[in-house]
């Protein structure tokens, strides 16, 4: 038997394996980018979304015992209430923009990831 069929067979098998793994992984891992205005009219389907907006500092509540951080995010047109289960970041009080990842519910966004963009005198790291 020549080498060629073995090589081609192996390659097909390898690609199928990767495809299978990727397909399995994709379902739970996909995070869709939406704007706040788009999110307001989105149906609630358990899909993970990523949203960027301005933190309205006068809406911030924080319970360190849980810990649970709550605030509203705005894009200038609409607002979206956010709950984030985690420690309030050091620089949250100065945050202008925040990027959040989570699942949309009846009461707003349940976020599990929070990234801040702060005015900094330092160049990006």
């Amino acid at each position: 038997m020549g080498k060629r069929p073995v090589v081609i067979g192996g390659a097909i098998l390898a690609i199928m394996l990767l495809g299978f793994l990727a397909f399995q992984a994709f379902e739970n891992a996909a995070v869709y980018y939406y704007t706040i205005t788009e999110a307001a009219s989105l149906e609630i389907n358990g899909q993970k979304i990523r949203i960027k907006g301005e933190v309205l500092q006068d809406t911030v509540t924080y319970d360190p015992q849980k810990p649970l951080l709550g605030f509203s995010l705005s894009d200038g047109h609409s607002e979206l209430p956010v709950k984030y289960e985690g420690v309030m970041p050091d620089n949250f009080g100065h945050a202008q923009e925040a990027i959040l990842e989570g699942v949309l519910t009846e009461t707003g966004l349940n976020a599990d990831k929070l990234m801040l963009q702060c005015p900094s005198k330092y160049e990006g790291v």
């Binding site: 399995q24 994709f26 739970n28 891992a29 996909a30 869709y32 990842e101």
Partner: peptide, 14 residues
């Protein structure tokens, strides 16, 4: 036509 990000679970699973 929409950016879709894959989070850590994708990389771990694969």
């Amino acid at each position: 036509e929409r950016e879709v990000l894959l989070d850590e679970s994708f990389f771990s699973t694969i």
